[in-house]
Design a protein around this nucleic acid. Structure first.
Length: 388
DNA sequence: ATCCATGATTTGTA
DNA sequence: TACAAATCATGGAT
């Protein structure tokens, strides 16, 4: 019995882990052989024992010797019978194993990953090169929403980078899988001349290889998903992660706001210009660029907050009014030395469809006073402002 | 820990 | 679609 187990290791154990289920089969061999050989079974037994011994000793011999022995074994008169029996047994055990672990359901985890990659446009069809050209095309298609794509062009670039890596890696794995599969298949086919290997077994081996490689692919998908998630959190979902604008940017925006207080609604072009200016001034710092929509947000917030509590902003208003007045006066002085009165900033504030303004005389006085005395305005504007 | 300023988002409207 | 208004959520000062 011990020898039988060992021969199974040597001949039949092809790394499939079938040893456990083999004992019964070997019993069958034994019975069949006894029944077939009849009386002179002892001599046969001895014969087989020799063969087994030679097989077990094969690894101790040199390659040439082994080849010679192999040839000898292959030519042995017992070989075809023994080989076919072994094949039969393996077929049986192989089938039982096959039935046990076939029909693996589609991994829900893998499906989730696939769906996500598809949704993020990583595994889906390439969108026109996936580069800046795609972003520009998308912007053009959106019509006037170029701002949005500027905001996310960096995101898109990074995403397409991820996609490219993903695809090249995936292709690499696929290629490796195919190469390995054909290699193993050739190997098994080659070996099937000396070992009991059925086509089904090769098929099964291929299945195992594919599963292994697809698990590697899953790792790739997993890390790709992670990368995308990180990217998202960095770019898209960072929307709420508020970063205050730089001092210079705020200054630029405030300058515009207070110098256009009567109509603090910059046109699209003006917004673009402001965004550009803010981004330029900010570029020397660490801050990110400021987009048109951010400028719009800023003006929206500013208008509503200014309107809600003009008094609170009066100091700021005076500051910027003075600033613009000084620059204006300076410009006027350069242009025309006779110009004596600096243009007074417009203190009226007009919202869409409604108008509320400071009492013009008082505000003018206060502004002028403050401008030239450096004094600070009182909170009286709050009560003076008329919101209709 | 708390408060306020502020950028972003949502909702309703014309 | 742009905007007002309300609201959310964070940054930063205290």
């Amino acid at each position: 019995m011990d020898d039988q187990t060992r021969i199974m290791h040597a001949l039949g154990g092809v790394g499939l882990g079938v040893q456990g289920g083999v004992q019964g089969g070997m019993q069958g061999v034994q019975v069949a052989m006894h029944g077939h050989e009849g009386a002179d079974g002892d001599a046969r037994k001895q014969d087989i024992g020799d063969i087994l011994h030679q097989i077990m000793a094969i690894t101790d011999q040199s390659l040439d010797e082994a080849q010679a022995k192999k040839h000898g074994l292959n030519c042995h008169r017992m070989k075809p019978a023994l080989f076919s029996v072994l094949c039969e047994i393996k077929e049986k055990t192989g089938l039982s194993i096959r039935g046990a672990q076939e029909e693996d359901p589609p991994d829900p985890q893998l499906m989730r990953l696939d769906n996500m990659l598809l949704a993020e446009g990583v595994s889906g069809p390439e969108k026109g090169g996936g580069s800046a050209a795609a972003a520009a095309a998308a912007a053009a298609a959106a019509g006037g929403a170029s701002d949005n794509s500027i905001e996310h062009s960096d995101y898109r670039a990074k995403l397409s980078q991820i996609r490219q890596i993903y695809h090249t890696e995936l292709e690499k794995y696929e290629q490796a899988c195919n190469e390995f599969t054909t290699h193993v298949m050739n190997l098994l086919r080659e070996q099937s001349r000396t070992r009991p290997i059925s086509p089904k077994e090769i098929e099964r081996m291929v299945g195992i290889i594919h599963r292994k490689f697809s698990s590697i692919q899953m790792q790739l998908k997993q890390s790709t998903c992670e990368a995308v998630m990180i990217l998202r959190s960095r770019f898209l979902d960072a929307r709420r992660k508020r970063r205050n604008f730089s001092k210079q940017a705020t200054e630029i925006l405030n300058e515009y706001f207070y110098s256009h207080l009567s109509n603090p609604y910059p046109s699209e072009e003006a917004k673009e210009e402001l965004a550009k200016k803010c981004s330029i001034t900010v570029s020397q710092g660490v801050g990110s660029t400021i987009t048109v929509s951010q400028v719009s947000n800023w003006f929206g917030n500013k208008r509503i907050r200014y309107k809600k509590n003009i008094g609170k902003f009066q100091e700021e208003a005076n500051l910027y009014a003075a600033k613009t007045a000084v620059t204006a006066a300076h410009a006027a002085a350069v242009q025309n030395s006779q110009a004596s009165s600096p243009s007074t900033p417009n203190s009226g504030f007009q919202m869409k469809d409604e108008e509320f303004q400071l009492d013009s005389a008082e505000s003018k006085n206060s502004l002028l006073t403050n401008m030239f005395t450096g004094g600070y305005p009182t909170a009286c504007y709050q009560s003076d402002s008329r919101i209709q």
